[in-house]
Amino acid sequence: MDAQETVRRHIATLLSGQRLATLSTCSAEGHPYASLVAFDADPDLSGMIFATSRATRKFANLSHQARAAMLVDNSGNVKSDIYAAMAVTALGVTTELTGAAQDEAVARYILKHPHMATFVQAPSTAVLRLAVDVYYLVNRFQKVMEYHVGR
């Protein structure tokens, strides 16, 4: 297995094992904003799906600036996290899903988060997809590798 495949598998394992991610957005005035979202990742790692009420600050921010970052990690709030935990930051562009794409995403999302079915299917909820350009995988405290999707 080459190094790229090893890194890709580390990322896939982390994304499938975690339920929540920290979404970073930016307001029209340039103010950064971080919020927790439940997510599901595409099997080929090309994107991450999440949902939010259209009334939220993050939705407003994304309506203005579609570029966003998502942080996923497996830290357990213990001292060994500093060297044992792994984190992935995904960078990309978000779009709101509609039609068949939305239906497919919602079905997958509910498989991972069955208790969120009502929320994700509510008329006021937007289903969004972060199309990922690059993942930054951080482990052993300071080692950082970049995985460019689709190359």
Binding site: Q4, Q142, M145, V149
Partner: peptide
């Protein structure tokens, strides 16, 4: 070719 076209190191320890 040795490590894959999509992989780069950003920070090595």
């Amino acid at each position: 070719a040795a490590h894959g076209p999509g992989l780069r190191a950003r920070q090595l320890v």
